[in-house]
Simulated scan of single mutants.
Amino acid sequence: MAAVQCELACDAGCDLGESPIWDAATSTLYFVDINSKRIHSYSPASGAHRTIQLEQPIGTVVPTSNPNILLAALEASCLPSLADCLDAWLARDIVEVDVAAGTTGRVLATTPEEHGVDGMRFNDGKVSPQGTLLVGRMHCKWRDGQRGRLYRLDPGSSQLVEVLRPEEVHLPNGMAWDEAKGVVFYVDSGAETIVECQTDGQGVMRRGEDGSLLARTVSHAPTQHKHVPDGMAIDTDGNLWVALGESGSVVCYDAQTGKELRLVGLPVKRPTACTFGGEQLEHLYVTTRVESGKAASPHHGGLFRLTIPGVKGVAAAYPFPL
């Protein structure tokens, strides 16, 4: 098997790098640093690296039909102080971000008040091939059993509609679509599973006549949350690439059988998410988070680029129509 090439693409120094997404319209790789409240942009052609500093943490970003505008899911702090709870009450929004100005603009939608605020934050999100945003919320005490939700935001709507209820998902995470098969895959980090769901006309999880999800579990690899499956991408062969938190690796699964096909080691211990990028989607970009202590890896918190012979990705940065 040909060797994988791994290189540091951008020494971003993230505290919690997440949500990488390749914007083909601008040939830009966007990702976020949740804890530092920053959106990062990286241009492989020039090597240019820019950050946008916001006032609130960002769970995820996605491109839109306007190349100068991103959507950002602003989230709440996990600290249980009254001040943070008040901030959280204001930080449940999907907002526009002007890339050039580095400022937030119009609020497109807000999570329902009855779904809670304290301890909740936005997590990963992506736009379906049909243009609907799917975005998850997680509870900061998810390791203690607290559960999240998954929402949809349809084009032209101002309502975040619940797709997966707390009893159906523990910690919603990375998503990927196989359009030919009419399915969407998502990671449930809390359950340590990858799930395949049939989709409706907007690429969103579909239910049967009895109200149950038309879904199956692709993979369940319990580690008692030692190595948590996180962000995910899909390649042209339909295989799923998943960043395994705290494992120092990215794993490739057969989407039909759930069999582990390949494990790719990284020069850092804490990968978080991955996406295919490059003009031919020939690279797998991996975000990482901070490490501490004398054994910390060089360039932890950086953005890494994998070139895997014979592997190319499927477009993931479907734009949200504005």
Rank of each mutant, 00 (worst) to 15 (best):
residue 6 C to E: 13
residue 7 E to V: 11
residue 10 C to T: 09
residue 11 D to M: 10
residue 12 A to W: 09
residue 18 E to V: 02
residue 20 P to R: 08
residue 31 F to H: 07
residue 32 V to S: 07
residue 33 D to A: 07
residue 45 A to M: 10
residue 51 T to Y: 12
residue 51 T to A: 10
residue 51 T to W: 12
residue 52 I to W: 07
residue 56 Q to T: 14
residue 58 I to F: 09
residue 64 T to S: 06
residue 75 E to Y: 11
residue 80 P to N: 03
residue 81 S to E: 11
residue 91 A to R: 02
residue 104 T to S: 05
residue 108 L to Y: 03
residue 113 E to F: 13
residue 118 D to W: 15
residue 119 G to M: 00
residue 122 F to T: 04
residue 125 G to A: 01
residue 128 S to H: 04
residue 141 K to L: 14
residue 144 D to H: 15
residue 145 G to R: 04
residue 146 Q to K: 13
residue 153 L to R: 02
residue 158 S to N: 15
residue 158 S to V: 11
residue 159 Q to N: 13
residue 160 L to G: 03
residue 160 L to F: 06
residue 163 V to M: 05
residue 170 H to C: 09
residue 173 N to H: 03
residue 174 G to C: 04
residue 181 K to C: 14
residue 189 S to V: 02
residue 190 G to A: 06
residue 195 V to C: 11
residue 197 C to T: 09
residue 198 Q to M: 15
residue 204 V to A: 01
residue 204 V to S: 04
residue 204 V to T: 04
residue 210 D to A: 08
residue 212 S to E: 13
residue 214 L to C: 10
residue 219 S to R: 12
residue 221 A to F: 15
residue 225 H to S: 11
residue 226 K to E: 15
residue 229 P to M: 02
residue 235 D to K: 01
residue 236 T to K: 13
residue 240 L to F: 04
residue 248 G to A: 01
residue 256 Q to S: 13
residue 262 R to W: 08
residue 263 L to H: 14
residue 267 P to M: 00
residue 268 V to I: 02
residue 268 V to W: 03
residue 269 K to I: 08
residue 274 C to R: 00
residue 280 Q to L: 08
residue 281 L to I: 01
residue 283 H to C: 08
residue 287 T to H: 02
residue 288 T to Y: 02
residue 289 R to F: 11
residue 290 V to F: 10
residue 292 S to N: 15
residue 293 G to K: 00
residue 297 S to W: 02
residue 298 P to C: 07
residue 301 G to W: 00
residue 307 T to A: 09
residue 308 I to H: 03
residue 311 V to E: 07
residue 317 A to E: 07
residue 317 A to P: 02
residue 319 P to I: 00
residue 322 L to P: 07
